[in-house]
Amino acid sequence: MPKANGVDIREQLLEFHSKYYSANLMRLVVLGREPLDELEKMVTELFSSIPSTDAPKPSLSYAGAEPFGAEQMGHTVYVVPVKELRLLSMTWPLPAQQEHFEVKPTRYLSHLLGHESAGSVLALLKKEGLADSLSAGEGSAAEGFSSL
């Protein structure tokens, strides 16, 4: 299909790579049993030649947009799935949580809501025959926005 449209995928890949795979936009995490100094030396030797073109961060056309505006809030969406599936999903918008990554305040909520011990939400739902599993967690879909 790309060929029929006159698109050279390989050319596009190389172009994408040279545009965005610039060291200033990349982060590397290494986990190993070697001493830190040794890991650092390895990484410096191997990765220093990745070019850095000072590439600008790809623009986010939706930056600042409110994903849950008045039109999206307070709605229930019913979906008939292809699979045999019964699922209830509730979503609350939250302010961006990225800056709290060291503390993770939403973990307190998701831990309590998702707990499965006696007296938990799930235990009650199970007892009533309403659910057989439950999960809760923060979903960080995009920069500047989060949800639970």
Binding site: R10, L13, L14, H17, Y21, M26, V30, G32, R33, E34, M42, V43, L46, F47, S49, I50, P51
Partner: peptide
Amino acid sequence: QQEHFAGALDRFAQFFIKPLF
């Protein structure tokens, strides 16, 4: 596995330095 880490990391780095595609 740890004994192959350095070699694997080298190959991994090459993709970002000069990918073949």
